[in-house]
Design a protein around this nucleic acid. Structure first.
Lengths: 162, 162
DNA sequence: GCACGCTATGCAAAACATTCCCATTTTATC
DNA sequence: GATAAAATGGGAATGTTTTGCATAGCGTGC
């Protein structure tokens, strides 16, 4: 239901209103900053974004917004189950909208491209007796088709040189 | 083959020598600091440890060691395929010995206890055409048996109070 | 429309993990 | 023991995230 999945403008706004209603009902105030952050999430061209990335986008809509505000609202959105926070490298955390769909990611070590996969391992996994799973992470790192081609070419050139 | 898995003292040292040989062969020098770090890894009581945790343990063996040295050697061990680095929360990264076995983790959100699971989802997952997987992460968060009991009791008490 | 209470924001500083630089020390080799 | 190369210690720098506090802005009741 976000840009990179459906690309249907109408739905976004519908969803934004839903979100706004949810937030109001839970006692949150609707500030310009929050709206800007939600807007940015709705229009992300890639599934995952860092706080930095989101901040940069939000600044375009609402110049003068502070980084703390972005972080505070990201935390809030995570708390409220609207956004998922995932970390897979030592650097910055990534955030993504939870728009009904649960999915995992193929992450290219070459170009950084992220693709979503529908398969979820939790069903196939024999759960340990007594352990109650709440959440899980599953990310696959490797090389996408284009990068494999590039890499193979590079390796070939390197061998020629040596 | 580490303490928390087999608990057989003899094996550790055997393995340490193996490691040391491997490192020497690859052109690394055997410093006191490196030995201390390896020793610490062999004796970890839990599978996952942060750089901070490792540093603290190493200091006991080799006081005066610097944090940079620990980080540099952790990087080296990861590079050489002796240690795996995993990140699942925004804080510090975790390190674990790769002692032949590939496994994933059940991480308790209550007490922080980490249990290893042998199941690996990569085989069951239909891989996207053209993508070449190199590495992956799969961590399950939830509550362990003890914490579930505690949590259930807590919830009960809370309901009684309200 | 206005005042009020509470929440959210901006700002600056702190906290934290990690990396980098460089002078000095240590290791392996001869 | 001398030497070259590699590793270390120390401290500063970096990048991300959190925090405290004064001020501003939102939503509610009048």
């Amino acid at each position: 239901m976000t840009a990179w999945k459906l690309g249907k403008g109408v739905l976004w706004m519908q969803n934004k209103n839903e979100f706004v209603e949810q937030l109001k009902q839970r006692g949150y105030k609707l500030t310009k900053q929050r709206q800007a952050i939600l807007d940015v999430f709705m229009e992300l061209e890639r599934p995952l974004a860092t706080a930095q990335h989101i901040f940069e986008k939000v600044v375009e809509i609402n110049p003068g917004i502070n980084f703390s505000t972005v972080y505070r609202n990201l935390d809030m959105l995570v708390q409220e189950g609207i956004v998922r926070k995932i970390t897979f490298d030592q650097g910055a955390a990534y955030y993504e909208l939870i728009d009904g769909g649960h999915h995992h990611h193929l992450i290219c070590k070459g170009c950084g491209k992220v693709q979503c996969v529908e398969y979820c391992p939790l069903g196939d996994m024999p759960m340990k007796e007594g352990f109650v799973p709440i959440d899980h992470s599953f990310e696959i790192f490797g090389f996408c088709e284009e990068c494999v081609r590039t890499k193979l070419l590079d390796d070939e050139r390197r061998r020629e040189r040596e």
